[in-house]
């Protein structure tokens, strides 16, 4: 399995990362202007209110772009070729992630994908994606 290094967590992102350990991917929505926020923040970046709510997002999307890293460094040094991508979520935001459990030669922009969670062992799980099972 691809290494799952633990992210840095702060007071703004704690709720997000805790949800990942429960298999949930939460997004924020601005109560005032109704836009979806990415990544977690205290203030809406459009109207700057602190009145933002969270909701459980859909765990599907499509590949917006991807690259196959031929040789990683650090924790990924021995991972072999692996995929970094932007996935456009069904709820809108384009987020950076990895695509796993896929034939890299079959990977393409627009491919439907679904979320999987890889436990970091430190109170968080990385949200990654695999090709949507038929």
């Amino acid at each position: 399995m691809l290494p799952a290094p633990a992210p840095v967590i702060n007071s703004t992102t704690a709720e997000f990362w805790k949800a990942t350990t429960e298999g949930r991917f939460i997004l924020q929505r601005c109560d005032a202007c109704d836009i979806v926020l990415w990544f977690p923040r205290r203030n809406c970046p459009k109207c700057w209110t602190e009145d933002v709510s969270t909701f459980d997002a859909q765990q599907t999307g499509t590949v917006y772009s991807f690259t196959v890293v031929r040789k990683g460094k650090g924790a990924f040094q021995n991972a072999g070729p692996f995929v970094i991508a932007y996935v456009e979520l069904a709820d809108g935001p384009r987020i950076m992630t990895n695509i796993v459990d896929c034939d890299i030669d079959a990977l393409h922009v627009g491919m439907p994908v679904e979320m999987v969670f890889h436990d970091t062992g430190e109170g968080s799980a990385l949200y990654r994606f695999r090709p949507l099972s038929a």
């Binding site: 691809l2 290494p3 799952a4 290094p5 633990a6 992210p7 840095v8 967590i9 703004t12 992102t13 990362w17 990415w38 990544f39 923040r41 917006y64 772009s65 991807f66 690259t67 890293v69 990683g72 460094k73 650090g74 924790a75 990924f76 991972a79 692996f82 970094i84 991508a85 932007y86 987020i95 950076m96 992630t97 990895n98 922009v109 627009g110 990385l126």
Partner: peptide, 29 residues
């Protein structure tokens, strides 16, 4: 650390080529 920390790292991005490649791939598409 910026607010994006944790959301733009952890995916094995360890060099500038990795993210520029994402731009190249999309431009090609």
């Amino acid at each position: 650390q910026g607010p994006e920390t944790g959301f733009e790292s952890g995916w094995g991005v360890s060099g500038a080529p990795h993210t520029y490649a994402l731009a190249a791939q999309r431009h090609m598409y």
